[in-house]
């Protein structure tokens, strides 16, 4: 790794190396290797360029809302967040883009995303972290692999399938159990989301726990701690930055998930913290409205402002969780 700092951690990069088992066959035509390396490099840079392009494209459509004088007059930046007066004089926050005049307050949508994300994390995190701890510290070797495979399968269930399950089955259970005012609501959407978030948190947390060197466990055992003490008192704290990174990634996944919330939340833009009420998230709003909106209108640009918020938040969370993971590995001496 030290000798070749430019090698990219992609499977393709190591393929030529493993393809020559004997020294006598080592002399391969050089141009082919160069081509392979070049291809790998282009792919890697292409991924970076794609992220940059997405960011550029979204920001390019979002910025005019604040930069363009006519648009800024039509929809002042402050009006995206400040309340308006209702007919009875009470303050209200309204997202009603197809209206005269359009009401484009972002707070109901931001609160909606926050509500479902919190529910999803509160449900998914304890389950996922405990499962990861069990798999990494307690599970018999023959149970470990099947459990991981099943969890990965759960991660692979298409979100539309999870959404339809929530819409038709989960919503009725929740209403029967919790007597929520709306059948489709933030609680149902959050619970459904937790099905998508938990496998992600599990996988990252399990990675983090496995990254704790066995010397830590051996030292604990040598001092007379039993398995449970080692797991909870030594391994879990040592892996905590990585676990937090997993939770953060789970939060980004929940914020960005579209299909599940679109189907399960009812999509009413109500500004209220009650989890039993229908809720409208940022992603569902973009999905429902971007197809119809007039290109270049204030509504169009506001939808891109929402999109830009999503991109920036999820990129930020990814960078931060990556840094946390690296920090942990360096501290534990298992870093790459």
């Amino acid at each position: 790794m030290d000798a070749e700092p430019t090698v990219h951690p992609l499977p393709l990069a190591v393929a030529p190396a493993t393809a020559r088992p004997r020294a006598s066959l080592a002399r391969r035509p050089r141009p082919l290797e160069r081509l392979a390396e070049g291809l790998v490099r282009v792919t890697a840079y292409g991924a970076v360029a794609a992220v940059g392009a997405v960011l550029f494209f979204v920001l390019r459509e979002a910025v005019p809302l604040f930069a363009d004088a006519a648009l800024a007059l039509e929809v002042p930046a402050g009006s995206l967040f400040s309340p308006t007066a209702a007919a009875d004089g009470a303050w209200q926050f309204v997202w009603q883009p197809v209206a005269e005049p359009p009401k484009l307050n972002l707070l109901p949508l931001l609160l909606g995303s926050l509500k479902v994300t919190l529910v999803a994390l509160l449900v998914a995190t304890p389950v996922a972290v405990m499962a990861a701890l069990w798999v990494s510290e307690f599970a018999p070797a023959r149970a470990r692999q099947p459990v991981k495979i099943v969890v990965e399968l759960l991660a692979g269930v298409p979100s539309v399938v999870v959404g339809v399950f929530a819409l038709s089955v989960l919503a009725s259970w929740v209403q029967r159990a919790a007597h929520t005012p709306h059948r489709l609501n933030a609680l149902v959407a959050g619970l459904a989301l937790s099905l998508a978030v938990a496998p992600l948190v599990f996988t990252v947390a399990e990675d983090a726990l496995r990254a704790v060197p066995d010397s830590y466990r051996a030292a604990g055992r040598a001092l007379g701690a039993d398995r449970r003490h080692v797991a909870l008192g030594i391994v879990l704290p040592a892996a905590s930055p990585g676990i937090l990174a997993g939770i953060a990634l789970g939060a980004a996944r929940a914020l960005g998930e579209t299909m599940i919330v679109l189907l399960a939340s009812g999509n009413a833009a109500i500004f209220d913290t009650d989890l039993g009420l229908s809720t409208r998230t940022v992603t569902a709003t973009i999905a429902q409205e971007l197809g119809e909106v007039t290109v270049g209108s204030a509504h169009w640009h506001v939808l891109f402002v929402l999109g830009a918020m999503l991109v920036v938040v999820s990129l930020g969370v990814n960078v931060a969780s990556d840094a946390a993971m690296r920090h942990m590995r360096r501290k534990l001496g298992t870093g790459s």
Binding site: L200, G291, L310, V311, S314, D322
Partner: peptide, 26 residues
């Protein structure tokens, strides 16, 4: 290996956001 995971995870997330952001424009 873990780096692969992190990379693919990041790619998946970026893809998701992309999807969310550009769901039906074109």
């Amino acid at each position: 290996m873990n780096d692969h995971n992190a990379l693919s995870r990041r790619a998946a997330l970026v893809g998701l956001t992309l999807l969310a952001a550009c769901s039906r424009p074109s």
